[in-house]
Write a protein that binds this DNA or RNA. Structure first.
Length: 212
DNA sequence: CTCCCGATAT
DNA sequence: ATATCAGGAG
């Protein structure tokens, strides 16, 4: 009960500070969102947007990605890092989209998770932003770090963190929650040098409280 | 737990 | 030059 109240207060303050928090990836359809989210692994959303601006002019359908030479696709996404791995994921995932789903991106968690390069974080992003299906809470590095620091969760693994968050975050906030934490994680609660003095959550933050 | 990798900040 | 940033697979 105590924890649920704390989460509510955290969300309330974050909403006030970041009223326009939302997904930072640019996309115009489910396929573009899927590709952009796969590319966003270990890469900033800003860089992904730079790459996809060109990428989506060249590759317009799942078939385009599936039939591209792997080396060429890899070069086209090079600057997002891990490019050979990601090129394989994208090509193979799109091959599956073409063969099993008529070139469309599936609408269920189960089907999405079968695609290479897609785990719960990516699946949650695609489902919620492309189809309005809220199955869970995407846990990326920001959500993971802030949830642990503030003391919202005890686990350190993404899957377990997601489960814990689903217990305490009101369902109507599941969609906005990760974007609120990301905004704060990028601006104040930085990974290495968090700006605690200027943080409006310090009176609620376990990490801050335990070292001051 | 290790590997996959470039870009930007310092 | 070197530290920091950031998901998924095997």
């Amino acid at each position: 009960m105590e924890l649920k109240e704390k989460v509510k207060e955290v969300i309330k303050r974050l909403k006030k500070a970041y009223p326009s928090a939302r997904i930072a990836l640019n996309f115009q359809n489910p396929l573009q969102l899927l590709i952009a989210t796969i590319l966003s692994a270990q890469c900033t959303d800003e860089r992904v947007n730079q790459v996809t601006a060109e990428l989506f002019k060249k590759y317009r359908t799942a078939k385009d990605f599936a039939s591209a030479p792997i080396e060429e696709l890899a070069l086209d996404i090079k600057s997002t890092g891990f490019f050979q791995q990601k090129a394989k994921y994208i090509k193979e995932a799109c091959r599956i989209l073409v063969e099993k789903y008529g070139g469309e991106v599936p609408r269920t968690m189960e089907e999405l998770l079968e695609l290479p390069g897609v785990a719960r974080k990516t699946a949650n992003i695609v489902l919620s932003n492309a189809y309005g299906v809220i199955e869970g809470i995407p846990v990326d590095t920001h959500v993971s770090r802030l949830a642990q620091r503030i003391g919202l969760v005890k686990s350190k693994q993404a899957e377990k963190i997601e489960k814990e968050l689903m217990e305490i975050v009101p369902r109507e906030d599941w969609f906005i929650f990760p974007y609120l934490l990301q905004a704060h994680g990028r601006k104040i609660c930085l990974a290495k040098k968090p700006k605690c003095p200027e943080c409006f959550l310090k009176d609620l933050c376990d990490a801050y409280l335990s070292q001051n």
